[in-house]
């Protein structure tokens, strides 16, 4: 990822550094499929302003492209008549829009208080270890798993709670972790 809009002022900044807040490029222009466009058009009928459709439109984009790239932001901004900076600002405010491609299984461990009391942090660490010493947010070498930590999933009675992509999983402990991961293959 580059450090942003321009290049650092050479005589003052030294070497350019890598930024972490910019939208990654997909390397190509993107556009919705006809089906997604139809969904988008229907969305617009549900709100008095175009802007209100931004979050749902980003969901459609994520469904279409898998993640929100620089080009996806430009595309969505164009669809809704918003500035790309605004769209990226909104995208990054919310945690569920992927800012990079993720593995086939996006494993989301809740570590908030109830899951913490059930030892979620240890399970999270164990899971990353099993999948090849992954850092949080890292995707396994085979591209199948991305493991991240998330805040409360509102499944505190099923602690430690885990979400994989859009599906909820209950009581994932160190004991059943292997079986759980096996089920994802």
């Amino acid at each position: 990822m580059s450090g942003g809009a321009g290049t650092p002022v050479s005589e003052q900044a030294g070497l350019p550094r890598v930024g972490e807040h910019g939208a990654l490029s997909a390397g190509k222009a993107v556009a919705f499929s006809p089906k997604a466009l139809a969904r988008f058009e229907k969305l617009l009928t549900r709100y008095p302003t175009k802007q209100a459709a931004l979050l749902p439109t980003l969901w459609i984009a994520q469904g279409e492209f898998g993640w929100i790239s620089r080009e996806a932001v430009d595309y969505v901004a164009g669809l809704l008549g918003l500035s790309p900076a605004f769209v990226w600002g909104v995208t990054t405010f919310y945690t569920m829009y992927n800012r990079a491609p993720v593995g086939k299984h996006l494993i989301q461990f809740c570590t908030s208080i109830s899951c913490h009391l059930a030892g979620a942090e240890e399970v999270f660490a164990e899971c990353r270890k099993i999948l090849g010493d992954l850092k949080p947010g890292e995707t396994s070498a085979d591209g199948r798993f991305t493991v991240i930590e998330v805040e409360c999933l509102a499944q505190c009675d099923k602690a430690p709670a885990v979400m994989v992509n859009d599906d909820d999983f209950a009581i994932i402990t160190k004991d059943n972790l292997q079986k759980f991961l096996g089920g994802l293959r």
């Binding site: 302003t49 459709a53 979050l55 749902p56 919310y94």
Partner: peptide, 29 residues
């Protein structure tokens, strides 16, 4: 009467009613 389900994007603060309103309008919460 119309009724629309609107799905958020993952932000605790949007449970605060005015943040929820901002978010529904398509903004940062």
């Amino acid at each position: 009467l119309d009724l629309t389900i609107h799905r958020g994007g993952g932000a605790y603060i949007c449970g605060e009613e005015t943040a929820l309103i901002e978010s529904l309008e398509g903004k940062r919460g």
